[in-house]
Amino acid sequence: MSPVSPARIDEVLRDARARVVRAGLEHADAELLLAHTLGKSRSWLYAHGEDVLPDEPAQRYAAFLDRRIAGEPLAYLTGRKGFWRFELNVTPDTLIPRPETELLVELALAHLPRDRPVRVADLGTGSGAIALAIAYERPRAHVVAIDASVAALEVARENAKALRLTNVEFRLGDWCAPLADDTFDVIASNPPYIALGDLHLEDLRYEPASALTSGHDGLDAIRAILRDAASHLAPGGALFVEHGYRQGAKVRALFDAARLRDVETANDVEKRERVTSGVKG
């Protein structure tokens, strides 16, 4: 931990911004961590720049800053991550929600009518990001959120409670197994899709490996989902799966093999193939 001496908030932030930028991070990380440490907003920091930072929060802030510079994700340090229209609690038991996953939510919502009850399943819900976004936008939907991790499901439950969403049911288990004999208008999933041994895993070392990797080509989880998903879709129901930007062709082939129709892949904001969907005939 770096040594700390009493200093004004604006001085502490000046030095912290310089450190995080030298580490290749965004300077805003320094402000967000100090705001989190003090339980204040970033605007409060600007308004109180001449205040002296007391020793105890200064020590905690220095520890947070050292951990961030060492590579620990900001979301795990603050316990919060923005997604869709809200902030979610996240822990190291859950994958950190990414902006590209909002594309999957948009596509699923486009398939779901607003004027009647519908049923939705989110496989591998993690923090609940997909399930809660759909439940929020479709109050008449009954959303089943599934995860194999007890700890992750507890985080998702806490998020649903904080958002006062009462139309979400939580089930423990792997992929489609907890769906029993139920059928759904939409099944959505952001499963692990990184290949074992991928060099990018070092950058993701703080996140749960079970939510990241899936076999030698990264597609084992998607294969498991497609093995059973069609039997849980109502006629006209659709499956939406997020995947890596180089996996589109292989995922479409898996969708075709599962005898889903209207198979197509949507691109994310960076024009990369990101979400493949198919409809039950």
Rank of each mutant, 00 (worst) to 15 (best):
E102K: 06
G79I: 07
P139M: 14
R17M: 10
V269A: 15
A121V: 09
V155G: 01
T78W: 15
P99M: 03
E169P: 03
A234T: 13
N190M: 08
A180Q: 14
D198S: 06
L88P: 01
E87I: 12
V144M: 12
L107Y: 00
L212F: 05
V143F: 04
R60N: 13
G173D: 11
A230Q: 07
G215F: 10
W44I: 03
A257Q: 11
Y46L: 15
L25G: 09
V263Y: 00
A177R: 11
D182N: 13
L104Y: 01
T183R: 15
A188Q: 06
P54M: 09
K40I: 11
G248Y: 00
A62H: 04
P117Y: 03
R252H: 01
V186F: 00
R19N: 04
D185V: 02
D15V: 11
P117F: 08
L104W: 02
R60D: 15
P92I: 07
L239V: 06
A234D: 13
R8H: 12
G236P: 04
R246W: 09
M1V: 11
D256V: 02
P97I: 02
R164C: 15
V143T: 10
S214I: 06
P113I: 13
L163H: 09
R19L: 11
L13G: 02
V21F: 13
L45K: 11
G82F: 07
E11S: 14
K161L: 15
S189Y: 03
A229R: 02
E31S: 03
G49H: 03
A129E: 05
L201I: 07
A238S: 14
S231K: 09
A229L: 02
L112S: 12
S277R: 12
T166Q: 15
D174T: 15
L34G: 09
A63K: 14
T91Y: 10
T78E: 08
G71R: 06
C176G: 11
G82I: 01
R252G: 00
G215V: 03
E56N: 11
L239D: 02
A177M: 10
S41R: 10
L199V: 12
G82P: 02
L199E: 11
D147G: 07
A129K: 08
A177C: 07
F240N: 01
T265C: 00
D115H: 09
A156Q: 02
G236V: 07
L132Y: 02
A129H: 09
D217R: 04
V241N: 01
A58F: 08
L107C: 06
T125I: 07
L107T: 00
R274P: 00
D256N: 05
T265V: 00
R22N: 14
H232G: 06
A249P: 01
D181G: 14
H111M: 12
A258D: 06
A224G: 14
F184D: 05
L95M: 10
K280E: 13
E154S: 13
F184H: 08
L163C: 09
D174A: 15
K250F: 04
I194G: 08
V4D: 05
V263I: 00
G82M: 03
R171G: 06
V155Y: 09
V12L: 04
R261D: 14
A70K: 13
N267D: 12
I146E: 05
I134D: 07
S5N: 15
D262R: 12
L33M: 04
R8F: 10
V251H: 00
H36I: 02
E50L: 15
P192M: 04
S214K: 03
D66Y: 05
